[in-house]
């Protein structure tokens, strides 16, 4: 029997409108993205700015309005649900945001911020229960219970991000979407928070979508990685394979460009690999064709579909 995935995203497309030169244009932030997430699995989504990785996360929890596709969570399509099912979605799929300074209301105490979901949905039977759950959430993220009475400005960046995680895990969710959750932190603090996320995954049986531009942190925490380029997934594979043997030409460029902490690999003069194109100018055919070393004529006319080339490995490229 094949185990049913916890979260199954099929053909997700998200547009948004933007003003450009006085004209309103539609931009496809996410284009036909599909992936699955198993119980206790961590899926890393990696890509450069504007590739749509953040929009994928926001679309799943409906912060952005997806215009096409299905998101099936525990066997139920949660895109069309409302009412009680929607409330379940709010409690079971949780988000951790990038900026630990902006994601907490400066005028609310840490305790109030952590308890917010419970307060919105009336989860707490009593004040004592509310207190107990907040204390539990704080201790789960390695913070002292006294933090509940403090305010965000009294905390360091790492502590705030722990609070952001505590807020996410309070209602015992199934899925945590971490959007650049460690990007704003210093390396030593980043390591602490990555370890914390790994621990919580073990102890709470969490699944995670870990969105980041940094292949280093994605590689550390993820079981599987999806690489996005211009709103599309161009390659998914188990973490080790994508790092040791990237297949899609874009993944290869990305891997090569990542600064590796090894002084024997020096940067050379004369690297010219082009820049990510503007989202406003989506070319016909493969979006990577312009920068691709393997480009052939078909690339400029046909947008390649994601196809399986080895077990668990999907690549969207005509020429590999």
């Amino acid at each position: 029997m094949i185990e049913q995935p916890l979260l199954d995203v099929r053909g997700l497309s998200t547009d948004y409108t933007a003003k450009r030169g006085g004209k309103t244009v539609r931009v496809q932030a996410v284009k036909d993205v599909s992936f699955t997430l198993a119980k206790r699995e961590v899926l890393g989504i990696v890509g450069e700015s504007g590739c749509g990785k953040t929009s994928v996360g926001r679309s799943i929890i409906r912060l952005a309005k997806p215009h096409r596709g299905e998101v099936i969570f525990s066997g139920k399509d949660i895109f069309t649900t409302g009412g009680d099912a929607l409330k379940q979605l709010r409690l079971k799929i949780r988000m951790v945001f990038q900026d630990p300074f902006a994601s907490l209301n400066p005028r609310r105490s840490i305790g109030d911020s952590i308890a917010e979901t419970g307060d919105i949905h009336g989860l707490f039977a009593s004040k004592a229960e509310r207190h107990r759950q907040v204390q539990q959430a704080l201790s789960n993220v390695g913070l002292d219970g006294s933090f509940a009475a403090r305010y965000p400005h009294e905390l360091s960046g790492g502590q705030r991000q722990r609070v952001g995680i505590a807020r996410a895990i309070l209602p015992a969710p199934d899925v945590v979407i971490a959007d650049e959750a460690v990007s704003a932190l210093d390396v030593s603090v980043q390591a602490q928070v990555l370890n914390l996320l790994a621990d919580l995954r073990e102890s709470m049986g969490l699944s995670m979508i870990f969105i980041s531009h940094d292949l280093g942190v994605v590689g550390q925490i993820s079981d599987r990685v999806a690489v996005m380029y211009m709103g599309r997934i161009v390659e998914t594979a188990p973490t080790a394979s994508i790092i040791e043997q990237p297949i899609h030409p874009y993944t290869r460029t990305l891997m090569a460009a990542r600064p590796k902490p090894d002084p024997r690999i020096r940067i050379k003069a004369g690297i010219e690999i082009g820049e990510p194109p503007s989202q406003f100018e989506r070319p016909a055919g493969c979006p990577y064709a312009k920068r691709c070393p393997l480009v052939t004529t078909i690339c400029t006319t046909d947008d390649p579909a994601l196809r399986t080339i080895a077990p668990g490995r999907l690549v969207a490229c005509h020429n590999v």
């Binding site: 912060l63 929607l86 409330k87 902006a102 994601s103 907490l104 209301n105 917010e116 949905h121 952001g164």
Partner: peptide, 9 residues
Amino acid sequence: YVEAANSMG
């Protein structure tokens, strides 16, 4: 933080 609240419903 307002977005966060929205994401919680």
